[in-house]
Each structure stands twice: as structure tokens, then as C-alpha cells.
Design a protein around this nucleic acid. Structure first.
Lengths: 133, 133
DNA sequence: ATGTTAAATTGTAATGATTACAATTTAGTA
DNA sequence: TACTAAATTGTAATCATTACAATTTAACAT
């Protein structure tokens, strides 16, 4: 199991957070995760959600996205992809994409740990809505 | 002048904010801009700085960066480039880079307005510091 | 099984960036 | 020079995130 593999203490709270992110690819905020899980886990604290997210993040199991500016969003890492953010509906969708620069990047002399590709605009669905008018 | 070209009302406050961003490629926060400009413009309000940044941003004259997570940073747009964020010193440096995906992106059916490339890791300078130890 | 201990969880309070808002001032134009 | 819509200002509110201290618990050794 992924927690044991990373020497992270296994707690029910961490398990539910991880399970939530595994089942929900909606790039939720800490608050969305908390609000949902709180229903079935009344003793859950929001701080715990933040702590769990930070721990998972630090071990590279999940990724935190800064794309929407005023809040962090979280994403279980399933390999390299970029994100598209719709300025109208706020939805974030994954974009499967190989960035050919990843390897070249090292020539700058910096040590690369993360690569984030954020594309912003208007999504397919919202474009259709606009056309109707 | 760039403000007139965009039909933005010319005010001394907007001018000093723009000038600051033109001269300082440090990707400052709103607060850094405010604190510096306040010295020579005592009547300047922080809200005005936020307003000016938003207006300039909306017109594509400047870009807001979400790279550091808990605060927005601003950058005068001089053509396509990505950003490198050092996790140790917090500095953000420009990476001149042509992204070959920009054109291909449209096939997803979304309308693309902005592309952000954020690379995170440890910068050259901080790597040297680490080696000394 | 049980006891031990370092680490995790909880709830509350603090922080700090950003936004809301209403009163005042001003840029652009007639 | 006067007018008006828009910009500026300062204060107060908002809201995500973090700090912290008390309590609980996972993991491990006996």
C-alpha cells in the first residue's frame, strides 16, 4: 500500500482523504474534501485534512495546484499531465500532454522537481453556451 | 502609450505601478509593490494597487502568477516564457522557452487564452550553498 | 496482549492576502 | 470651466491557511 511504501503512518483520516482523491478527479479544494468527508466522519477536523494533504504532497503522492489563484487544489498523481482551467465555470480538466522540454530543462543549472502546465481559457461546454446567445 | 492604446484611463497611480513592474523583473507581490511605492507616494492606497494590477491584468498588459501558492505575483509580459520557482529561496526566475504545444492545444476544443509553465525545484545558487555543507 | 512513545488528530485562535464598500477625488470630454 | 463616469482611498469584512496546545492513537517492543 502506498502509505506503507512511503513510511507514512497509516491513519483512518489519511486513508479517507486518499480514497476521496482517488475516486474524485475534480481537483477539489481542502474544504471540499473536508465538507464531504465530514458527513461520514463527524470527528474529522479540517486541520487534519490540511495535514494529510501536506504529508501526501510532500511525498509526491498527490500534487497541489495553484491554478485558480486564491486557493489550492489537489490531484492524485497519475503520471504527467497538464491542467486546463475554464475562466467561466471554474472547472479544471486534465490535459494529457507530453512536454518535450522536461529533459532539456536541466541545462539551466537548476534542480527540477515539479513541472506544472496551466492553460487557461474557456472550455468546450462554456463556448457552446455562449454561442446559443 | 500602452494605457491609452488599451483605453485605460491614465492615472498617476497606474503609471507608477506599471513603471515599477517595468523596472523590476522580480515578480513582486501586490504588497511589495505597494510598500515600495508608498514611500514616494504617501497617499497611495493598497486597494488602488490591487485595482491597478487587476485592470492591467485584464487587458493582458501584465500577467498574474499563482506559482507560489499563497499569494499572487505579477509580471510585465514580455513575450512567452515560463517560470522557475526555487523552493528554498523562493525566488522566481524567467525561463526563456518556446512551448511547442501552444498551437496543438486547440484540438481539445477549448479556447486558449493563457499558458503558464511553472517549474519548481532548487535553483543554481541554492544548490551551491547546499554543496558547501 | 500490554505499555510506551513519538507522531497524529482536534478545535480554537491567529494570520495574512484579497475583496467589499461607501465617501471623496479626478481624468477625460463637452 | 463644468460635468460625469470612473478611479482612489481607508476601513472593515472575508476566507483560505497556519499555529498551537491538549488529547488521542499507530506502531513497535516487551
Amino acid at each position: 500500500m502506498i502509505l506503507k511504501d512511503n513510511n507514512i503512518k497509516i491513519t483512518p483520516q489519511r486513508l479517507v482523504v486518499l480514497e476521496y482523491l482517488d475516486k474524485n478527479c475534480t481537483h477539489p479544494t481542502a474544504d471540499e474534501i473536508y465538507s464531504y468527508l465530514k458527513k461520514k466522519n463527524p470527528s474529522l477536523s479540517k486541520t487534519t485534512v490540511y495535514n494529510a494533504l501536506e504529508t501526501l504532497s510532500k511525498h509526491g503522492i498527490i500534487q497541489s495546484l495553484t491554478i485558480s489563484g486564491y486557493e489550492l487544489r489537489y490531484d492524485l498523481d497519475h503520471g504527467m499531465h497538464h491542467h486546463f482551467y475554464c475562466k467561466i465555470c471554474g472547472r479544471i480538466v486534465d490535459i494529457e500532454l507530453k512536454c518535450p522540454n522536461v529533459e532539456k530543462m536541466k541545462k539551466y543549472g537548476h534542480e527540477i522537481e515539479e513541472i506544472h502546465g496551466y492553460i487557461k481559457g474557456i472550455c468546450k461546454k462554456c463556448l457552446k453556451e455562449k454561442d446559443k446567445k
